[in-house]
Amino acid sequence: MSSPKVQLRLNGMRKSFPGKEAATQVLDGLTFDIHERDFVSIIGPSGCGKTTVFNIIAGLVDPDDGVMLYRGQEVESLRGRVGYMMQKDLLFPWRTVLDNVLLGLETKGVDPKRALDTAREYLSTFGLSGFENSYPKMLSGGMRQRVALIRTLVLDPDILLLDEPFSALDYQTRLYLEGILMEAVETFHKTVILVTHDIDEAVALSKRVVVLSQRPARVKAVHDIALNEHSPIAARSDPRFSGYFHTLCAELDIQTRKSA
């Protein structure tokens, strides 16, 4: 097997935030690679700086130190090229479903007519035709998060940054949306980085799992997940699933015990 091509490399990322008394060091020389068409989950103890990693990649936060390489080229951030999705759906309440999906395309300056066609096409692909003119507050949580996913995908981003996108949803809706996500990733050939607290979700969806240490975060371990199935339900019934699950649990457990 040839070694996979690196799409994004974070090298020696350091970041501290000024605090009341002393600065809090959040990232301590964080280094990891994302391959082309990778699906990497980042797990780690609460408050270890997972979201900071995303904010640095998306250009919302400047690192104190460290280099980001995109396909071998040094870049400041991937602002404008990532699809960022958070736990909150962040739909604009004053925009209809259609206008929410159009948000990124408008920002990018895509021709309005083409943007409209694309948006409608995506909405129908994801079964939301007929809701174009609804306002977000009229939709269920699962539907809202589906709209948020469409809004992210319609931009055709180089990398999807998913920050616990499903953690506010009930288990059924979550499995359903995980399925939709996996299908979309397959169809559109996307690279995904997923931050999650849910080890179960990380194992079921990912090709690789990066485990971060307690703050200041460093990469503690990287696990390749070799399940045959990546549809969320089938993956969970793979015989190797529970092995991975327990390995990762153990790794996080040690962290929590140390901190206690």
Binding site: N55, A58, G59, L60, R79, G80, R81, V82, Y84, M86, K88, L90, F92, L103, G104, E106, T107, K108, L155, L161
Partner: peptide, 21 residues
């Protein structure tokens, strides 16, 4: 909402666009 601004910024929006949207 700061998160809406952050989201739009990550999409590459300029300050004017964030103001407008």
């Amino acid at each position: 909402d700061k998160d809406l601004q952050a989201l739009l910024f990550s999409m590459g929006a300029s300050k004017q666009q964030i103001f407008k949207r």
